Deep mutational scan, measured.
Amino acid sequence: MEVRTIKVFTTVDNINLHTQVVDMSMTYGQQFGPTYLDGADVTKIKPHNSHEGKTFYVLPNDDTLRVEAFEYYHTTDPSFLGRYMSALNHTKKWKYPQVNGLTSIKWADNNCYLATALLTLQQIELKFNPPALQDAYYRARAGEAANFCALILAYCNKTVGELGDVRETMSYLFQHANLDSCKRVLNVVCKTCGQQQTTLKGVEAVMYMGTLSYEQFKKGVQIPCTCGKQATKYLVQQESPFVMMSAPPAQYELKHGTFTCASEYTGNYQCGHYKHITSKETLYCIDGALLTKSSEYKGPITDVFYKENSYTTTIK
């Protein structure tokens, strides 16, 4: 009895394709271990004539594949690729409408935090270190965002349907971005203890939790000093293409032309909904596939993004 075979390709990165001759009487799992086709788990399936010449994702289970996976995804987590594939199996079914010149995501599976993050990423200057993220990001900007969303979920250790947080998501993504040249110098002034300067680099240099107003941050924000008295913390120097200011959701007025974009969060910790506000020729609110415009805006804002380049204080 002759062994019926077909020729397929296996890959971990969709760049390096490895030619395989597979036995049609055995499952993919018996031949390769966990195997995925377009995100779908085909591990328990036997090869079919229609699979001839198709590319299958496999887990990096030998040295060659491990090197290829690390170079593309910059992670050695053995569960990463499987999590990416199972997320992709959902995100490829989502709709990605162009809204006001940006790629958004039609609401499904509690994905409003991903839509808000995706919209924000198209408006701030950011370059990702893992080629996987950078490639998928370019495709997302062009309207094909399924891979990018699935990668975000995998890097953030999230599953489809789980509630997510924009600030946490951005923080994970910033860790995989090139923020080497970003720098922030802060000064804390206390009447009792004097003053202390701190220099922050990388992710810490672009994120701040405690106030939404970048102007206020430049002037000074009140913080408790270690001595128990009130101290003032203010920005001395900022070198970065953008800054992200966050605070627990509270009524906040966004003035046209003073910011790049913002995240609105309605609801409580267990259950809520994100919308995205962007400042173009007027203010726009993007909620999944829905767009509304207004000249002014007041609502429960939790993150505001500002364009920056270089700032030095005039406070002496």
Rank of each mutant, 00 (worst) to 15 (best):
L81A: 00
L290R: 12
L151W: 07
V3H: 14
L37A: 12
H90T: 13
F259I: 03
Q123L: 05
Y36P: 08
V22Y: 06
Q20E: 13
N268K: 09
A108K: 08
H276V: 03
V99M: 14
Y265P: 00
L173F: 05
M209P: 08
Q175P: 07
L163K: 10
G143P: 02
H74S: 07
E144C: 09
Y234W: 09
A140C: 10
A289D: 15
K255I: 14
D109C: 09
F128H: 03
T260I: 15
V221A: 02
D23K: 14
T27Q: 09
H176E: 09
K44Y: 12
K95M: 06
L65W: 06
L153T: 04
D165K: 06
K46R: 13
F32C: 15
Y72A: 15
A140E: 12
L119M: 06
Y137C: 05
F242V: 03
E125S: 08
A289S: 09
N111S: 01
K275N: 00
C225G: 01
N309Q: 12
S213I: 07
L290T: 13
F174K: 04
H74G: 15
C149E: 08
T278I: 09
D13R: 07
I223S: 12
Q20C: 07
S86L: 14
I6E: 07
A262V: 02
L121W: 09
A250T: 15
N147T: 12
R139V: 05
K127L: 06
F56Y: 07
G33K: 06
G257M: 02
R66A: 13
T11E: 07
G29P: 04
K44F: 14
T75A: 11
S104P: 06
C112T: 06
G257W: 00
L235H: 00
T10N: 06
D41G: 07
V185Q: 01
I301P: 02
I286H: 02
R141T: 10
Q197M: 12
Y36S: 05
Y265Q: 06
Q175V: 00
Y297R: 01
Y57F: 13
S104L: 06
C149N: 00
T120W: 10
Q197N: 08
T258G: 07
G220S: 05
H273V: 02
L37K: 12
Y265S: 06
I286Q: 01
I277D: 05
F148A: 07
C182K: 05
H48R: 11
C271H: 13
A289F: 01
K54Y: 14
D38W: 12
K201C: 10
Q98A: 03
D13L: 01
L59N: 13
V206K: 00
C225A: 04
L118D: 00
A247Y: 05
N49M: 15
D135H: 10
P130Q: 05
Q98T: 12
P60I: 08
T116W: 04
Q175M: 04
T260P: 03
M85W: 13
A108S: 12
E253P: 03
S263R: 01
E52N: 14
M244H: 03
Y274A: 04
T226M: 11
Q251I: 14
V203T: 06
E264P: 04
Y113D: 05
Y84T: 03
S310D: 11
G101T: 03
T27S: 11
V203I: 13
L37P: 05
T116C: 15
E253H: 03
P34M: 15
V22K: 01
T260R: 03
Q123G: 01
K127R: 10
N157P: 02
H90P: 04
V188M: 14
P300E: 13
Q195L: 14
G101A: 01
T64E: 14
G220K: 02
T260H: 01
D303A: 06
S213M: 05
T278V: 08
T55W: 07
R83T: 01
G194P: 05
V67R: 15
T5K: 13
K255V: 14
G101C: 03
A136N: 07
L81Y: 10
E2F: 08
D135S: 10
V189D: 13
I105A: 09
L151H: 00
P78A: 11
V160S: 05
K183A: 07
E125P: 11
E253L: 11
K183D: 03
F9H: 15
Y73C: 03
L37S: 13
V160P: 07
E264M: 05
P78M: 14
N16T: 09
S104R: 05
K54P: 03
G33D: 03
L290P: 01
K46Q: 12
L163S: 10
H48L: 13
W107P: 06
G210S: 11
T116F: 06
Y96N: 01
K280R: 14
Y57V: 13
S279W: 00
D62L: 09
G53D: 11
K298L: 06
A262C: 01
T192E: 15
T314F: 11
D77K: 01
K219G: 07
T5Y: 12
H48W: 14
Y269H: 12
Y73H: 06
S25Y: 10
F70V: 13
S246T: 04
T260Q: 15
N49H: 12
Y269Q: 08
Q31V: 13
G39M: 08
K93E: 12
E125D: 15
R139K: 14
V22N: 01
V58D: 08
K280D: 07
H51Q: 06
E215P: 01
Y214T: 02
K307P: 15
A262S: 00
T312R: 15
Y138H: 13
K7L: 12
A140G: 06
F217C: 02
Q196T: 14
V22H: 04
P224C: 08
N157E: 06
A177C: 15
K316N: 15
T169N: 06
E281V: 00
Y72P: 06
A115D: 04
P300M: 15
V188F: 06
E264W: 08
T260L: 15
Y155L: 00
L126T: 00
A115G: 05
G29M: 14
P60F: 09
E253V: 15
E71Y: 11
G29H: 06
T258E: 13
K201R: 15
Y284F: 07
L153S: 09
L119Y: 03
K183I: 10
V243T: 00
I286F: 02
D62F: 04
K92Y: 01
N14P: 11
L235E: 06
L17S: 09
N178W: 02
I124P: 06
F148G: 04
H74V: 01
G299W: 05
Q98L: 15
Q196H: 13
V221E: 00
C156H: 04
T199S: 08
F305S: 00
W94D: 07
A136M: 06
Q270L: 12
Y57R: 02
M85S: 00
S171T: 14
F217W: 01
Q98F: 00
Q237K: 11
F217T: 07
Y28L: 12
R66E: 15
L291K: 06
L118W: 10
T19Y: 10
A154W: 05
K275L: 07
G202M: 01
G33V: 08
F32D: 13
Q238T: 03
S213K: 03
P241H: 07
A262D: 05
H90W: 06
L200R: 07
H18A: 08
P248H: 06
G164L: 00
T159P: 09
V304M: 15
L254Q: 12
L283E: 07
Q197L: 09
L114F: 08
D287I: 10
Q195C: 14
K44G: 14
P34A: 13
M244T: 02
K93W: 07
K229S: 14
G299V: 01
Q20S: 12
G228L: 00
E239N: 06
C149I: 11
P300T: 11
G143W: 02
T91A: 01
L290K: 13
T27H: 08
D303K: 07
E264T: 03
Q175A: 03
G53A: 14
K229F: 09
K127M: 10
F9E: 03
Q197V: 12
V185C: 04
G267K: 01
T120Y: 02
T313G: 08
A231Q: 00
T91S: 08
R184F: 00
T91L: 04
V221M: 09
C227D: 01
V185S: 02
F259V: 05
V304C: 03
T5Q: 12
I277M: 04
V185Y: 05
V203R: 10
Y306I: 03
K7V: 12
A40W: 11
L37W: 14
Y28D: 10
D77M: 08
